[in-house]
């Protein structure tokens, strides 16, 4: 059974549902979230690539439990769903907690409101 594939899909769905129904931080509507995800995925290519490289892997996957689809040379496609779920969960909680943090409400307080007459750059 492709358990890693199944667990990855379940984790992704669970994290998305948690954000949309429970935590409601609004990250999916925030450009900063998508940018952060994009940057982290970019760095996942070398990091995950190194960890999973077939010539001398550090993490060794049981080929019976995943799709056996590897992207960017060696990382199982499931790793990308795993990364999405891990980073989205952390960001969802972090941003939600930020609402109660007067010094750190980001994305909802434009610079112009905080320091009138500053126009950016």
């Amino acid at each position: 059974m492709p358990w890693y594939t199944i667990m990855t899909l379940v984790a992704m769905a669970a994290v998305v549902a948690l954000e949309l129904l429970v935590v409601r931080s609004g990250i999916f509507r925030s450009p900063a979230y998508w940018i952060a995800l994009g940057i982290c995925f970019l760095f996942q290519i070398p990091v995950d690539g190194w960890l999973t490289k077939l010539s001398s892997p550090i993490v060794i996957y049981n080929s019976e439990v995943f799709s056996d689809i590897r992207i960017f040379w060696s990382s199982p496609i499931e790793d990308w769903g795993f990364g999405f779920a891990l980073m989205t969960l952390a960001l969802s909680i972090w941003v939600r907690l930020g609402r109660n943090d007067p010094a750190g409400v980001h994305g909802s307080t434009p610079a112009a409101e905080r320091t009138p007459e500053v126009t950016g750059a």
Partner: peptide
Amino acid sequence: IPLCALLSYEAGSNILRDG
């Protein structure tokens, strides 16, 4: 890994918001 995500998010927010 979560730390990297949070740092990217906060740095990105700062730049989007303040330039």
